[in-house]
Nucleic acid binder design. Structure first.
Length: 778
DNA sequence: CAGTGAGCGAGCTTCCGCTTGACTT
């Protein structure tokens, strides 16, 4: 008989703890939650105090069977899941499902995975906190009610398979609202004035000062008037101020800040960051990667101080403990940090190395001294104008944590009046102008969300948890509410006025503005669903809804409220409203009537069709059979909300006959997979740079030739003896096709050298599973 | 994979949070 069984949530954690506890203890893991609400029949008995119907999840049956076996063999079972709402519920589900006897079941918690912390926990067991469990049940039941009652309304009123939820719908709302702010943004321009001046220093040398005018001008005329005044002006140093400042390091990483920094500094997507972090965690390199805590263990503080002292000396050390301020944080874990602070780098893939170094630097920097800076501002008088130029500089007096790490920001801000070290000028020194420029600038529109900045936005609202940030972002993209895309910028002109000597030169320059990389854009369906939910389910869409739910959950956890009463107060008004929406509201298609076609006089409108957004020419009416409306899909980047009449009419110019080639017609059109050329029943996609509205027959023929060339190269080898077997060249290199199934060719052999026999070996070979196409979406 | 878009009806879709694999086209 085994003496003790400890159950934790994660296998990696089980492994570590097993080492600390010795042979009287077996440590197993539950792999997170083992049960969930039944999916069919709602899983909640609404009429019976919202009683949840729990079932063991399909993928946890093996885990539960294994745990049952282990519990039968143990004398004492220690439930060591995390000390938060979800962790407490996991412990309770384990006790219930494994039918543990309360007399030999103990609940323990620890926040650090160290021998001391665990032994201490073993000495201070407690019972399961049923109030905390109830808070979790309330959270779970509420999310089920919201998700499983509203989603079917969307199927009826908007489109099948859509979804709504407390977290995802608000995430989409953020993106939709930001997009509308951008669409409505009126970009005004102003004139920013910069100047370069030469100063003669005390030692006889000369030095340049770059400065910016402290005021801006709204119009060209004002800027010009100012430049005129500068023509005959003298420039003097009016004032020099020096001010010491200090800068402190950023807090250690949480899931959210790690995702943001990995996105900004390494260009990782949110899910990529989590996958790599998971690998590092499993390899024992870092602490747990799903956390909202900035707390560091005393061991970490100690070893960080040691390492800093060793690398940079004692004066760079400043031990700091951070307090988590995030809304709704549950602090079951430490911050994300290296397990061994001594290790600056680790072996592994390039991505693992980069992410590890980022974590190491951030953690180390958080334990280092402030940087001390000296900020200098030189003010320059203009003899004929009241405005003043200023030049500012920042000199690092003591680098402190900056030696290791500087946090990035989302905005790129480089001011032309900023430079590091300013020359040692004195007050009243005369400065010789080298050039003064007034440049037209446009006010910045709000920035679109990246995956990581959306996570930041959600976290600030207290919506979602570290374990759900990445999946939520995947969900809203899978539902096609949002797309992550690059968009090219547009060229725009700006004015430049330059004063060189006594002459003002005016020129028109151009720049590319508004280019986007990996940004989140709402789709039409995302906008229509958001509007629908805002109109009819305002409470759920409210940015403060989760926060108010959290307050209730806290009171349940404190034993001040009964969980199903809280749910009951929510449910009745919610459900009554929902019934009303089902009865009264019309089906929403986001329809807009744009006007009428000047040629035919028929009405032009846009709406969401069965296969996505479409434009419609003419109206459908049962008595005019011969005048059926024409349809055309909107193109990527076009929105129902913003498309113009002209753009919509343009869509009906497709498909377009280009001419003949080899006695067959060449037609250009736009299909489900984008613009294409059709010739001899073959479809050839246009490239990114081809415009289907202007593409010529010559270009089409070129594309046809390219396609033929590619096809001739596609077949590496065929076998006369076995016509069903082919070696083909695909997107990912050579592969085998046999009886319509694809097979991988091992990297160790050359595809062109394979014999028929070798090929069949691969087909029948073990460990070389056929690559089957999965139809499942996800 | 690409000439769709009428209308009916059956059966399906869906939430959030905790955790790993099993999948990678």
């Amino acid at each position: 008989m085994q003496e003790n069984l400890v159950i934790v949530e994660s296998p990696a954690k089980a492994k570590t703890i097993g080492k600390f506890l010795g042979k009287d203890f077996v440590v197993a893991s539950s792999m997170g939650h083992i049960r969930d609400l039944e999916k069919k029949d709602f899983g909640i008995d609404i009429k019976n105090k919202y009683r949840p119907k729990y079932i063991v999840s399909e993928d946890k049956k093996k885990v539960v069977a294994e745990l049952k076996k282990l519990t039968r063999e143990a004398r004492i079972v220690w439930l060591a899941s995390d000390e938060d709402r979800e962790g407490e519920a996991i412990a309770w589900h384990l006790q219930d499902e494994l039918k543990l006897n309360p007399e030999n079941t103990k609940r323990i918690v620890f926040h650090e995975i160290t021998k001391d912390a665990i032994l201490n926990a073993i000495h201070h067991p407690r019972a399961i906190d049923i109030n905390l469990v109830d808070a979790q049940q309330a959270r779970r039941v509420l999310d089920r009610i919201v998700g499983f009652e509203i989603s079917p309304v969307l199927w009826k009123k908007v489109k099948p398979s859509l979804s709504a939820g407390r977290v995802q719908s608000v995430a989409v709302r953020l993106i939709v609202e930001r997009e509308r702010e951008i669409l409505n943004f009126n970009s005004t321009s102003y004139f920013r004035v910069t100047g370069q001046f030469l100063a003669r220093l005390a030692d006889g040398t000369t030095a340049e000062i770059r400065a910016e005018l402290s005021s801006r001008f709204d119009t060209e005329n004002e800027a010009l008037a100012f430049m005129e005044k500068c023509k005959n002006s003298e420039f003097h140093v009016a004032d020099i101020t020096q001010k010491p400042t200090r800068r402190s390091p950023a807090q250690p990483f949480t899931t959210s800040t790690l995702q943001q920094e990995a996105s900004r500094k390494l260009g990782f997507s949110v899910s990529q960051t989590m996958t790599v972090a998971q690998k590092l965690y499993e390899a024992g390199r870092i602490t747990y990667m799903r956390t909202d805590s900035v707390h560091l263990s005393s061991l970490a503080l100690h070893t960080a101080a040691q390492k800093i002292s060793e690398l940079h000396g004692e004066k760079y050390v400043k031990t700091r403990q951070y307090k988590t301020k995030t809304k709704g944080a549950q602090e079951a874990h430490e911050a994300i940090r290296p397990t061994y602070m001594q290790e600056e780098t680790i072996p592994g893939t390039a991505q693992e190395k980069k992410l590890y170094e980022l974590i190491w630097k951030r953690t180390i920097a958080s334990q280092m001294a402030d940087a001390l800076l000296e900020k200098t501002v030189i003010t320059i008088d203009i003899s004929n104008a009241k405005e003043k130029f200023t030049a500012s500089g920042e000199v690092i007096v003591f680098d402190g944590f900056l030696k290791v790490y500087l946090e990035s920001t989302d905005e790129e801000s480089v001011s032309p009046g900023g430079q590091l070290l300013l020359p040692a000028v004195r007050v009243k020194d005369q400065l010789k102008p080298q050039g003064i420029q007034a440049t037209e600038k446009y006010a910045q529109r709000p920035a679109r969300y990246t995956e990581a900045s959306l996570v930041k936005g959600l976290e600030e609202l207290g919506i979602g948890r570290p374990s759900t940030y990445a999946p939520t972002i995947t969900t809203i993209q899978n539902r096609e509410y949002v797309v992550k895309e690059d968009r090219p910028g547009k060229e725009r002109n700006y004015l430049l006025l330059e004063l060189n000597g006594k002459e003002i030169v005016r020129s028109v320059k151009s720049e590319i503005a508004g280019a986007e990389k990996a940004k989140l854009f709402p789709t039409d369906i995302g906008m229509v669903v958001t509007d629908f939910l805002n109109d009819h389910f305002n409470q759920i869409m409210d940015y403060h809804f989760t926060a108010s739910v959290e307050r209730d959950l806290d009171e349940i956890a404190e034993g001040k409220k009964i969980w199903y009463e809280v749910i009951d107060r929510f449910y009745h008004p919610f459900h009554a409203n929902l019934d009303n929406v089902l009865k009264s509201s019309e089906k929403t298609r986001g329809e807009r009537i744009l006007g009428s076609d000047p040629v035919s006089g028929r009405q032009v409108s846009v709406k969401i069709g069965r296969f996505g957004p479409i434009a419609q020419l003419g109206e459908s009416s049962p008595d005019k059979e011969e005048e059926k409306p024409q349809f055309a899909s909107l193109r990527p980047g076009q929105l129902l909300e913003t498309i113009t009449l002209e753009e919509a009419i343009e869509l009906f110019r497709m498909p377009r006959e280009l001419g003949n080639y080899e006695n067959k017609s060449v037609v250009v059109g736009i299909g489900r997979f984008g613009p294409y050329v059709r010739h001899n029943n073959q479809f050839i996609s246009l490239t990114r740079n081809d415009d289907p509205y202007t593409v010529t027959i010559d270009r089409a023929i070129e594309l046809i030739a390219l396609k033929r060339e590619k096809e001739s190269k596609a077949v590496i080898r065929i076998f006369a003896e076995e016509p069903e077997l082919k070696i083909l060249n695909g997107r990912w290199g050579p592969y085998l096709v046999y009886k319509k199934e694809n097979y991988k060719i091992p990297k160790t052999v050359k595809a062109e050298d394979l014999s028929l026999e070798e090929c069949l070996n691969i087909v029948n070979g073990e460990g070389n599973k056929s690559i089957k196409r999965k139809k499942a979406r996800k």
